[in-house]
């Protein structure tokens, strides 16, 4: 209060009395501050822009249709209906460690507000799949039409090198099928029969999993990843596999 009283006692000295040098210094400081903010904003937009475009991860969409999935991660409530639907549709055996898709749980105890998130994971149908490169007998391959990483069961020798190579833990050995098994976006069990969605995407009550064709600019997955308002990311970009499963929020 004393300070305020003191200030009140002072008279406005008027800008006409401020020396030219002081004015210049003030203007420079203002410009510098503005510049920092403007530059920072532009940088942040630029970096978001980089991360937001799927083309930066997948590089290109050479398949028609180029199947892809976008996870709206914050919508997931871990109800596991996607997992149940997958098991039922794709005859995934009921043994420990056998699944084509699962939901991971992440806790951030010191976060303000919500402290738990759920991260659904499945095969990322990568554009540069390690599993395909390492397989000695071409038992796993990239489908030339739609880019899905497929299994040719009779070729699989069960060396499990593909499991070692996969940076997403998306593969398991099925004793029933006598081969490594993995998600194929329900190509044989649903898409081949005219269905538009994978079993997991269809079963999800919160529409977490958006499934579609990245090569079609009218498709929802294309629109979700080709924008800069919301951040889009992929898991383990450093593994260099150019995945086709994207993550976003909202």
């Amino acid at each position: 209060m004393d300070n305020k009283m003191d200030l009140d006692k002072h008279q406005n000295e008027g800008i006409e009395n401020i020396p030219m040098q002081q004015r210049r210094d003030f203007l420079k400081m203002g410009l510098a501050i503005t510049g920092i903010f403007a530059g920072g904003s532009m940088l942040s937009v630029a970096s978001t822009f980089n991360r937001a475009h799927a083309s930066d991860f997948a590089k290109k969409y050479p398949y028609k249709p180029h199947y892809s999935m976008v996870m709206r991660q914050d919508r997931c409530i871990d109800c596991e209906r996607c997992m149940e639907a997958c098991v039922k549709t794709n005859h995934v055996p009921n043994v420990h460690g056998a699944y084509r898709t699962t939901i991971l749980e992440k806790e951030t105890p010191d976060a303000i507000g919500g402290k738990r998130e759920f991260i659904p994971v499945l095969c990322n149908q990568c554009n540069l799949p390690q599993c395909v490169r390492v397989c000695p007998t071409k038992a796993t391959y990239k489908d030339k039409t739609n880019g899905i990483v497929m299994m040719k069961i009779q070729n699989c020798i069960g060396c499990l090198t593909c499991q070692e190579g996969c940076p997403y833990n998306a593969r398991y050995f099925s004793e029933e099928k006598k081969a490594v098994d993995k998600c194929n976006f329900c190509i044989d069990t649903r898409l081949a029969h005219g269905e538009k969605l994978t079993a997991c995407a269809f079963a999800c009550p919160a529409e977490v999993r958006v499934f579609g064709d990245l090569s079609n600019q009218e498709d929802q997955v294309f629109k979700l990843v080709h924008q800069i308002e919301k951040q889009v990311w992929v898991l383990r970009p450093e593994a260099g596999t150019r995945p086709n499963v994207f993550y976003t929020k909202g």
């Binding site: 000695p136 038992a139 006598k178």
Partner: peptide, 22 residues
């Protein structure tokens, strides 16, 4: 290896030249 007998066949008729294990 889970299915070694397949290796004898498919290593020969379906080789993957990018595979170090091959």
């Amino acid at each position: 290896i889970k299915l070694p007998w397949r290796m004898a066949i498919y290593n020969v008729i379906s080789p993957n030249l990018t595979s170090n294990i091959w």
